[in-house]
Design a protein around this nucleic acid. Structure first.
Lengths: 236, 236
DNA sequence: CTTTGTGAAATTATTCACAGCA
DNA sequence: TGCTGTGAATAATTTCACAAAG
């Protein structure tokens, strides 16, 4: 289950069209993104409706799981017909907050930071990486994919000016905690952490970790056990 | 719970020092990597033993959770004293298969692929990325961090010659499934997938997904809900 | 007849709490 | 006394199965 709701920090959030239930299973949220992705594909290939079993099989899930997950947020389907693709896309976008503008910045212009900045999938109509920062004077001022690498000192001003709500931590583990503090003090509301260590944020912001090395070790473990199949995203 | 054990594929794996139980909770495996990381830090700072509560608090977990997780694999602690740091590191390395050599290759020399190749944390004493491939003639032959980008046609030969057991998929979503098939046919035993789509591997190999966009959307959801705290790795 | 929505059952994971050992 | 190891209790999640809707 998700952590408790708290008073908000940083730039205020837009109201949601419909209220959400107070208890939301965390695995369901993770899968919502995947459903949205599948729904877009279905919509593009001209499907006006989609069955829970279709939506599920693309992700290796049972139809009942899909129905339960969607059921958390309301009733969208039509018995005997399925779910209206277009309308469900709209509702999932609304639930996930994708109708809002999400400006983000990257701290750390090393390999990962530069790759993320150049990564097209991060530049959607709702997400935008608007700045990249680094500590290293040798890197500051260099250009990466249309951006000039800025000194960390500029962080607070830019977070304010450009309404940055998400900070992406792409610095080495040693610098990650300090970076997180600077981001929080500057006013971001969420942190996407690529550094291989836990960030102590004292419940001031949300944190989601992306940890390559854990993923790699998990894979090695599976392989050395002789296991097969997908582990990770869809199946929690 | 993990998928069933199957007959093995690709280059054979080394035997493990001690047998593992047949049922291993998946969340425990994910946390094992994190425990190992913490143990290394504790060991470097001169701690000969560590308490379950210490190990846990660094990761935001209760001591009981740590003890349960370790308990799956045997008894390592000493009542009244804690866990011997050095010995536990050795045993976790053994459990996770980190005593074996893991050669990997990357397919896709775009932003992500190049960043991963240059990413130091992927070059440990057990993991080694020994080749990078791409489809694009304009990219083939260019150099990335001491490696020459090779044509995809060379994949099968190199997997054999260099005993590559892990394939890293760093191609666009559209090419991911085909890339997975080529990797499997070439003989890898596991795939680390960075492409934002599910790979159908028909239980021939293990797959672990790393999905940036899902992580980002989860973060946005948390933030727009006004939630705080860490979501992701350690906690379930 | 098909498929949703959802209680009820089953499974899986976490937390509690304490006996037993050092 | 302090801490591990672990059953028992609780909580969370998934799967089942079916009534109701189209």
């Amino acid at each position: 289950m998700l952590p408790q709701r708290e008073e908000m920090h940083g730039p205020s959030t837009m109201p949601r069209a419909m209220p959400l239930p107070d208890k939301i299973p965390e695995p369901a949220v993770r899968r919502l993104s995947l459903y949205l992705r599948e729904l877009r594909a279905a919509h593009e290939s001209g499907k006006a409706t989609i069955l829970s079993t279709e939506l599920g099989s693309a992700l290796g899930l049972a139809g009942a799981q899909v129905r339960k997950d969607l059921g958390v947020f309301g009733q969208f389907g039509q018995a005997g017909v399925g779910y209206p693709t277009q309308a469900l896309i709209a509702r999932l976008r609304n639930i996930l907050g994708k109708e809002q503008q999400w400006n983000a910045c990257i701290v750390g212009a090393g390999n990962i930071g530069r790759a993320l900045l150049s990564y097209n999938r991060f530049r959607g109509d709702d997400f935008d990486i608007v700045a990249i920062f680094d500590q290293n004077p040798a890197v500051i001022g260099t250009r990466v994919a249309d951006h000039r690498v800025r000194p960390l000192e500029d962080l607070p001003a830019l977070v304010r000016e450009r309404t940055i709500r998400i900070g992406i931590v792409a610095v080495p583990a040693e610098a990650a905690q300090e970076t997180a503090v600077r981001l929080i003090d500057a006013g971001v509301a969420g942190i996407l952490n690529f550094a291989p260590r836990r960030l102590d944020v004292a419940d001031r912001v949300s944190v989601v970790n992306v940890d390559f090395t854990v993923a790699l070790e998990q894979l090695a473990f599976q392989v050395s056990l002789g296991l097969t199949g997908t582990i990770g995203d869809a199946k929690k």
